[in-house]
Design a protein around this nucleic acid. Structure first.
Length: 453
RNA sequence: GCGCGGAUGCCCGAGCGGCCUAAGGGAGUGGCCUGCAAAGCCAUGAUUCGCGGGUUCAAAUCCCGCUCCGCGCUCCA
C-alpha cells in the first residue's frame, strides 16, 4: 500500500483509501494572473507522477485540480493594466495548459473554476453564518477560528502561538473577533467584479472555493489533498477550518511538496532571472526539469541552476542514446524490478529511488548489448521503458529535423570516410560541431543530433 | 521569539539504527571499443555523512547542545 508523509500527522502513514481500489486527489491549482513559475512546474510534476504511479498500480484515480479565476491578484493586475479581469484569467489559463503540455503533465480529470461555484460558495458561507461560526463585518464575512475544533492542525501551532508571530504587523480588519479569522466573503469596492449575496455585492475569499469544489467533486472524506509547502498555512488550514465548522469530514491525508530554490545572486545573473517556467523550458529541454524533480525527493528543496539543469540534460542524453540504441528491441519487463519500483514508489513517493532503478536498467541494457546478449538487453530495455512511462519521462528516439545543409555536410563526411580520407572527414565533423551538431557513428550509420549551446 | 525543514564525495542528490557495499545522475581520470571521435562498457573516486557531546553490542541514521541555511507566522501563495 502507498505510504505518504501526512502533514497533519507529521509522519509517513499508509494511504488508507475511503473506497477500496479508488483514490480521490485534490490538488490546489493555480491562480491565473500571470505566467507559471518554477514552483508551479514542480507542483504539477510531483502530482503528475503520483497520479501516474497510482494509476499504474491499478487504482482508479480521480484527480481534481482547480483554477482560481477570481482573486485579488487578478483584480490588481486588471486595474493596473486597465484590462478586463476575466480576460486576464482566460489568457493566463491558456498559458498554464500550454506549459503543462510542454511538461508532459496529464490534464486533471476535473478542472473546476472558482467562478463556476459562486452559488455553492454563498450557500456554504450562509450555512456557516447560520451556525454562528461566521459573522459579518463592514467589509465582509469572516470565519471565527476560535470555534473551529483543532485549528492549527496543519500549522502545528496553537492560536496563541499563531497570534504571537508576525511581529508588529498591523491587524487587518480591526472588526475581526480574532486576528486569525479570515474572510469568506469580501464586499466589493467600486469597480471591482462582484456577485450578489445575502451580505451584499462581493466576491468569495480565497479559501472557500477549494472546500466547496473538493467536497462537491470528490465528496466528504476524500483521500488526499495536496499542494506546496507554502499552502499549508493559512490556505489549507483555513480550508479545513471551514469543513470542520460545517461538521464535515475533509481530506484524509495532507501532502505537501518542498520549494524550488534558485541559486544566489551570481547564478541568477547567468540564468537571466529565470523564475518563469516557460523561460526555463525555452532555455532547456522541458524533460530536464522533470528529471531534476524526479531525482530528488518531493519534500526536499530543489536547486534550479544552470548546473543542475545542464546535468539533467546530460542525463537525458544518456536516456535518449539508450532509447535509440534499443528501439528495435522488445521483450517482457523484469517483474522483480517492477516490484522493487513499486516498493520504492510506495515508500512516500521515492522518485529518486525510482530513477535509480531506471538508470540501472539502462546500464544493464547497454551492457548486455555490448556483450551481444540481445535477449537480456530486450528485457532491461522493456523494463526501463515501463518505468520511464510511469515517471512521465519520454525518450527522444529520432534526431530532430536535420537542416539540408547539415545533412549535406554529414553526407560528404560519409563519402570522405568511405574513401578513407579521414582528414577531410574530420574537418567536416568539426564544421558540424560548430553548427551545433554531433555525429554519432552507430552500427546503422551516422546519427546526427543537436547538442546544447 | 514560535513552528516546519535542511547541512552527505568536485557538483546535484538518495539513504533515516545493523539486512547495504554510503544509491543514482553529472563532471574528472585510466582502460576497452573506434581510422579518430561520439555513444556505450569496465575501472577509479567520501576509513566518512555541519560542529561538540551522549545513548547503543552497533549511528549518516536516535537524544542533547551549538553553528549556519531555507520557508511560514493572519486573506501579501
Amino acid at each position: 500500500m502507498m505510504r505518504i508523509y501526512d502533514t497533519a500527522r507529521q509522519s509517513v502513514v499508509p494511504l488508507e483509501l475511503r473506497d477500496e481500489g479508488k483514490v480521490s486527489i485534490y490538488v490546489c491549482g493555480p491562480t491565473v494572473y500571470g505566467p507559471p513559475h518554477l514552483g508551479h512546474g514542480r507542483h504539477a510534476l510531483v502530482y503528475d507522477v503520483l497520479r501516474r504511479f497510482l494509476a499504474w498500480s491499478g487504482l482508479e484515480v480521480t484527480f481534481a485540480s482547480n483554477i482560481t479565476d477570481i482573486d485579488d491578484k487578478i483584480i490588481d493586475r486588471a486595474q493596473r493594466e486597465n484590462r478586463d479581469w476575466a480576460d486576464i484569467a482566460v489568457k493566463c489559463e491558456g498559458v498554464w495548459w500550454q506549459a503543462m503540455d510542454r511538461l508532459n503533465v496529464s490534464r486533471p480529470d476535473l478542472t473546476p473554476h472558482a467562478t463556476e461555484y459562486l452559488g455553492q460558495m454563498i450557500d456554504l458561507i450562509a450555512d456557516l453564518v447560520d451556525r454562528g461560526r461566521a459573522y459579518q463585518t463592514s467589509d465582509g464575512v469572516y470565519l471565527s477560528v476560535e470555534q473551529v475544533e483543532g485549528y492549527g492542525l496543519l500549522a502545528h501551532q496553537s492560536l496563541d502561538e499563531l497570534r504571537a508571530g508576525g511581529g508588529e504587523r498591523e491587524l487587518v480588519g480591526a472588526e475581526k473577533k480574532h486576528p486569525a479569522d479570515f474572510a469568506l466573503w469580501k464586499l466589493a469596492k467600486p469597480g471591482e467584479p462582484s456577485w450578489p449575496s445575502p451580505w451584499g455585492e462581493g466576491r468569495p475569499g480565497w479559501h472557500t472555493e477549494c472546500v466547496v469544489m473538493s467536497l462537491d467533486l470528490l465528496g466528504e472524506d476524500f483521500d488526499l489533498h495536496t499542494g506546496g509547502l507554502d499552502l499549508t498555512f493559512p490556505h489549507h488550514e483555513n480550508e479545513r477550518a471551514q469543513a470542520v465548522a460545517l461538521d464535515k469530514r475533509f481530506a484524509r491525508r495532507w501532502m505537501h511538496h518542498g520549494f524550488v530554490e534558485l541559486e544566489g545572486e551570481k547564478m541568477s545573473k547567468s540564468l537571466g532571472n529565470v523564475t518563469n517556467l516557460l523561460d526555463l523550458m525555452d532555455r532547456y529541454d522541458a524533460r530536464a526539469y522533470r528529471l531534476l524533480v524526479l531525482q530528488s525527493h518531493y519534500r526536499s528543496p530543489i536547486e534550479v541552476t544552470e548546473t543542475t539543469m545542464t546535468n539533467a540534460e546530460a542525463a537525458l542524453g544518456r536516456l535518449d542514446a539508450f532509447a535509440r540504441r534499443t528501439a528495435g528491441l522488445s521483450g517482457r519487463a523484469d517483474g522483480s524490478v517492477l516490484d522493487r519500483f513499486r516498493a520504492v514508489m510506495e515508500d512516500d513517493l521515492d522518485t529518486a529511488g525510482a530513477t535509480d532503478l531506471l538508470f540501472r536498467q539502462v546500464r544493464e541494457a547497454n551492457s548486455a548489448l555490448d556483450r551481444g546478449d540481445d535477449d537480456s538487453a530486450a528485457v532491461a530495455a522493456t523494463t526501463a521503458r515501463e518505468l520511464a512511462a510511469v515517471l512521465g519521462l519520454e525518450f527522444r528516439v529520432e534526431s530532430s529535423d536535420v537542416p539540408g545543409e547539415i545533412q549535406d555536410l554529414a553526407d560528404r563526411r560519409q563519402e570522405a570516410r568511405a574513401a578513407k580520407d579521414f582528414a577531410t572527414a574530420d574537418t567536416l565533423r568539426d564544421r558540424l560541431a560548430q553548427a551545433g551538431w554531433t555525429v554519432e557513428d552507430s552500427a546503422d550509420g551516422p546519427i546526427l543530433r543537436r547538442h546544447g549551446g
